[in-house]
């Protein structure tokens, strides 16, 4: 029962993030492209299970504005391309706080 609730929370977080970042992509496309600050960021992972990493990487890719590009061979760092990251540390912290913490509740 607790697990089911956690999964529902993952789904809800995902849909909210999907909505928010779709708006971000629409603004990026229709606004001036010169102002974008894209970046490839190294996101340190706290998830240890392979299934959790796959779920996190897929969710990162599916939310527009971030695409996972590669994972380090030891599986501790996920490399993510971010559409617009004026503040890199904040972007990493945001990804970890919203998506990763939810994923860790279902697949540690």
């Amino acid at each position: 029962m607790k697990r089911a609730l956690a999964w529902i929370r993952v789904a809800v977080t995902f849909i909210v993030e999907l909505g928010k970042s779709t708006i971000a992509v629409v603004r990026a496309v229709l606004g001036p492209t010169e102002r974008l600050r894209p970046a490839i960021l190294a996101v340190p992972l706290d998830i240890r299970s392979s299934a959790g990493k796959v779920l996190f990487a897929n969710m990162v890719t599916l939310t527009p504005g971030t695409t996972s590009l590669d994972i380090s061979p030891d599986g501790r760092i996920l490399y993510v391309h971010v559409l617009d990251a004026p503040d890199r540390d904040a972007a990493i912290a945001d990804m970890k706080a919203t998506l990763e913490s939810r994923v860790r509740e279902v697949l540690p």
Partner: peptide, 8 residues
Amino acid sequence: WPGSADAL
């Protein structure tokens, strides 16, 4: 794109 950070 110039100005992108590249952690890779």
